[in-house]
Nucleic acid binder design. Sequence first.
DNA 1: CGTGTTCTTGATGCCTTTCAAAAAGGGTGG
DNA 2: CCACCCTTTTTGAAAGGCATCAAGAACACG
Lengths: 248, 248
Amino acid sequence: MPNHSDRFVKCTDCKLRKLPIFRPFTDGELVYVEDFKAQHTYVPAGRDIVLPGATDTQLFTLFSGWAFRYKIMSDGRRQILNFLLPGDFIGLQSSVFEAMDHGVETLSDVELCVFPRAKLFELFQNWPALAFDVTWLASHEESLVDEQLTSVGQRSALERVSYLLIHLFRRKELLRETRDKSCDFPLTQQHLADSLGLSLVHANRTIRKLVTRKLITLARRRLTIHDPDELARIADYRDTTPVVRPII
Amino acid sequence: MPNHSDRFVKCTDCKLRKLPIFRPFTDGELVYVEDFKAQHTYVPAGRDIVLPGATDTQLFTLFSGWAFRYKIMSDGRRQILNFLLPGDFIGLQSSVFEAMDHGVETLSDVELCVFPRAKLFELFQNWPALAFDVTWLASHEESLVDEQLTSVGQRSALERVSYLLIHLFRRKELLRETRDKSCDFPLTQQHLADSLGLSLVHANRTIRKLVTRKLITLARRRLTIHDPDELARIADYRDTTPVVRPII
DNA sequence: CGTGTTCTTGATGCCTTTCAAAAAGGGTGG
DNA sequence: CCACCCTTTTTGAAAGGCATCAAGAACACG
């Protein structure tokens, strides 16, 4: 749960927004979003930000760190729906359903911008451009799930793992959170397995295969991609021209 | 492609909106949406409404019939992302990406309400409640894909087929498009297979198993569910209280 | 009634899961 | 700094679910 003792980061000072992937906001928009933002909190790794079935949850923008959305079946099987990185918006579905039908858990220590859900409609009334951004984010997140569904439905284990790794790495690149060919990578193999619809054992064997082929290194919470082209080829991953995106 | 010769259906006369699952619109909203609506067109079964990679596509509300969203991999593998039924909104992702990263194809003859994409932002400016509805629809569609991803990632073939059939049937019920325990069902087994991430042969064997157990009948474009409870039990399908939803 | 599509079924093989257990890594307290 | 414990990774062996190949049957349509 949010820790209220952290210091507030003003949107006007936000370093994330300075990245070229995020669309520049007007001064008016910045001031409004800053007012919309109720808190800036810290949550340690391995905590639920949103519990499945929770009602009346708040809205968040992930400011730093990793998290993931997931669903749990009644017998305990878990499907990780997608991974969240800085700039991603969290909790929209709580505005659609009374109870969240999925959970959100942190993978690393994270910082969150917290917004009161009750004021979301006010944003729609006063700032149509921001409202459009919210829709954009919802639609974009859906397209990520579309991709993941295609992966799990159509790709082999080797293709799936390759796809996920290159995909996450490219996202980290856009955030300038890679060094050389490597980046921080807090997922365990269980997370990979639950995301890819594979057993833990087979996920491990598949990763091992990529390591043996010298395409990647994966150890001590760090992913290195030695041959991104070959990985992309295996995965049928198409590099798309990065789209300038909004951030709330 | 749209056939312009059909007669326009006014939103104020729309019979879909009379269903209790759709939220009632104010007179002002109705008039505005009717103005937003450029055409009412008919498209026969088996046609692409939106081609993958298309730019500058229009927006649609499916007024009658069945359609589906899909992705194609470079070697031809197809993943069906979700099925579209009356009231579903089509084409939002074209507002997010310059080129559509998925296609939309009709399964039956359909009627479409056509909206010019260029006027979407105007809607956001003038009608925040409708803008919120658009976001709602995007978010809701994502939750459907979430469910499908969970199915493909975690459920066995028997569970997946059961889940999809009961899910589609429940949606048809809300639209009052079922009679007794059966409804129109234009999907071929290839569609089911491509949606579920199964081979055609295995999809067939699995369906056969459900038929043999007398849980369903599936023939001549018609699905009958004889034992919805048992089907839901197999699928770990939880009946949710239907949410009142918007329709643009 | 002919032809193309869709559905069925059999046979075979392998990709992936499951079961089991050891090895390696990380964190904590003495 | 090391012993200890829990988590995570790795590997082996065996079983099984699902894919692939192939071909006949049923169905839909003009």
